[in-house]
Amino acid sequence: MVAERIVEIFEQAGVTGCLHVVDLDAGVSGGDGGPPGGVPGRPGSLREVAVRADEQVVIASIFKVLLVLEFARQVVAGQLDPRERVLVTEDDRLGGWGVAGCADDAEVSLRDLAYFAMSVSDNTAADLLLRRVGADVPSMLAAELGLPRTRVVGGPRQLVETMLADVGARTEADFARIFPTLPPERVRAMRMFDPAHTTSSTAREITRLLGLIWRDEAGPPEACAMVRGWMARQLFWTRLASGFPPGVRVAGKTGTLPGLHLEAGVAEYPDGGRYAIAVFARAPQLATRRIDVDLAMGEAARAAVEALRAG
């Protein structure tokens, strides 16, 4: 019944949604169609809530969780100095928040690039960090962690280059002029919306990734703790966090493209309950700011978590 309620929440917001929520201390079943089952010591407890949880979807900036995880692992291994300085110049800027929006050159540490990439989803910071970590490494890390359906196709710069090519623009200024004039069907045909041609995963694999991080199984405990800390400092609160009452700590990472509203995170309750959440919503409109969709994501997440807590 909770799955039906969640579908209803999505429909009321006019979106198609994918959701996976799992009790991090109870385990999960093998697929959407499997029985919820129970866990040792908690007989009959519901372990997961899944709505289209195995559908391959574009994850956009949620890939930054993998990126900063690999950065943290390399720091702990002594391969990178988190204090290493990076000069961010005009040629590096991709537009957006954080150092991406600076008018002048800025010098920051690698560690601060990771912070900006997670807290405000800074694309320039993520692009520079990816260069230092290694462009192919996030995909290799996904494979190492047992996430076979999580694929990373380049970073923010590659996404921008693909977008320019798909609309026939030479510069970002050209893109800003051309994109609003395109019919919706032309926009939907762009590669950035096709899970087969861009960075993508499933809701189930993303909650698995979060579970590995929260249980210190995605790398050294110090590295996992770094990622949890950065995710807890995300500034955007209108999606998952909006659904939970005061006292529930929500750490998350958003992803946004025209018509796509995404977030993955973990809700931690004062009684120690921990729940990994992935909610992906696709709207027919191409707007990036839809507060009603964001709030519906939080409502759906809380409905799923409450069902797990009620057993």
Rank of each mutant, 00 (worst) to 15 (best):
A117R: 00
G247V: 08
R204P: 10
D216V: 13
G17Y: 01
V133G: 05
Y115K: 10
A267R: 01
L113A: 03
V68A: 03
V153S: 10
S139R: 04
F71M: 07
W237Q: 15
G44S: 09
A189L: 03
A60G: 08
R249P: 10
W214D: 13
D25I: 09
P148C: 07
L147T: 07
M231C: 04
T199L: 04
H261G: 09
L141C: 09
V7R: 11
G255E: 06
G273C: 11
L240M: 05
T288C: 14
V99M: 09
L235M: 12
N123T: 02
L286Y: 01
Q12V: 14
G255F: 01
G95T: 00
L141P: 06
F244I: 00
G101P: 05
G30S: 13
Q56L: 15
A203R: 08
V152E: 03
V75C: 06
E84L: 12
L87R: 13
E90T: 08
E70A: 12
E205K: 00
E11Y: 02
V227I: 06
R233G: 06
V305W: 04
D216K: 02
V75H: 01
Q74W: 01
P284Q: 06
M140H: 14
D122L: 08
A125L: 03
Q158S: 14
D105M: 14
D122S: 02
P245Y: 03
R188C: 06
Q285E: 15
V293C: 03
Q74S: 08
S119M: 13
P195N: 02
F175K: 10
L128T: 00
A169Y: 03
A53D: 12
F280C: 13
I178Q: 04
Q285M: 13
D194H: 05
P156S: 10
E268K: 06
V39Q: 09
E8V: 11
D92F: 02
P220V: 15
V57S: 10
L295T: 13
I62K: 00
E306M: 09
L164D: 06
F63T: 14
M297Q: 11
G259W: 05
D194A: 02
E161K: 04
R151K: 11
R228C: 07
W97P: 15
Q79I: 14
G31W: 12
V22N: 01
P180L: 03
V266A: 07
V120I: 12
L80Y: 07
T202K: 03
E4F: 10
F179Q: 08
G37M: 10
S201E: 11
T207P: 11
D122Y: 00
H261A: 07
D104V: 14
R188K: 06
K253A: 05
E48C: 10
F175Q: 14
F179A: 12
E172Q: 14
M231K: 01
R215Y: 08
E55C: 12
Q79P: 15
A126Y: 00
L240H: 00
V51G: 05
